[in-house]
């Protein structure tokens, strides 16, 4: 669906289904340099499974217009505006990487809007290395290639895939290409500047699920585990063999963990 926030067009995939009154809301938040396309194996699955789905493109990413937002806090404010615009009182947030930081910021500032959080391959802080930020600013294609390489685990590097004929490598690279120039460095800087995640995590009162990856080279497992330990009401799953791009690399497992988590109450 397309709508406007602050005068700029916003795109959100509904997972191919119209929203239905009374169904629970599930909002997917992509990571740095990515877009809603990273959730293609989740959005339809949950939309056909009884949820009202919004898989968002943040401003300046893929089909959403506007300028990339410079901080995690601003991204959370934008998310609040999106929820208000659509009339979502409360939702489960699913955040991959940077999207996990946005979920933390959102739960901190607007706890009433957040029913549950699913953290996917993320941590309480993502201290992006300065060299990568510099490369993203001076030669974005090189940074995209490195990030795609680091962002994928061994099976994806062997071009194994749950979707027949797909290449995670190719899709990773081309998905980043669909974003506005400058979106990647803006995201990386926003991640690097977000520093009080661990403190926020300790205050989060809603139920949370962390799905982390053993072969994650972008947000290493030990940092994800620190987040999991800080969250008061958390469930943790580790996919030992997956890389950072869990939604594409281990979609069936992730979806099952999410379903089990949603069904526990």
């Amino acid at each position: 669906m397309k709508f406007r926030i602050n005068g700029a067009q916003v795109y959100a995939s509904t997972g191919g289904r119209e929203h239905v009154d009374g169904q629970p809301w599930l909002i997917f938040l992509h990571g740095a340099g990515a877009s809603h396309l990273v959730w293609s194996q989740q959005s339809r699955s949950f939309a056909y499974g009884g949820f009202n789905v919004l898989a968002l493109d943040f401003p300046g990413h893929n089909l959403s217009e506007g300028v990339p937002l410079p901080s995690v806090e601003k991204q959370a404010e934008w998310l609040k505006a999106v929820m208000d615009h659509i009339g979502v009182a409360t939702a489960t947030l699913v955040g991959h990487s940077q999207g996990g930081l946005v979920s933390l910021a959102m739960a901190d500032k607007y706890p009433e809007k957040v029913e549950r959080i699913v953290f996917v391959a993320t941590a309480a802080a993502i201290p992006v290395n300065e060299k990568l930020i510099e490369t993203a600013e001076t030669s974005e294609p090189v940074a995209k290639s490195s990030m795609t390489a680091w962002g994928l685990g061994p099976d994806a590097h062997h071009f194994e895939n749950s979707v027949p004929g797909f290449s995670q490598v190719g899709n990773g690279l081309r998905t980043m290409d669909l974003n506005q120039e400058g979106a990647l460095p803006a995201d990386l800087k926003a991640c690097a500047a977000f520093e009080n995640g661990l403190e926020i995590a300790g205050r989060i009162s809603c139920p949370t699920l962390c799905v982390l990856a053993g072969k994650d080279r972008m947000t290493p497992l030990k940092f994800g585990k620190k987040l999991a330990e800080a969250l008061p009401d958390n469930r943790l799953h580790v996919l030992e063999h997956s890389g950072h791009t869990i939604p594409g690399e281990a979609p069936l497992e992730l979806n099952q963990f999410m379903r089990d988590f949603f069904n526990k109450e």
Partner: peptide, 12 residues
């Protein structure tokens, strides 16, 4: 399919 996509540098 995945092998040919890989060798050509395609998305699929």
């Amino acid at each position: 399919e995945q092998r040919v996509a890989a060798m050509e540098g395609g998305v699929a």
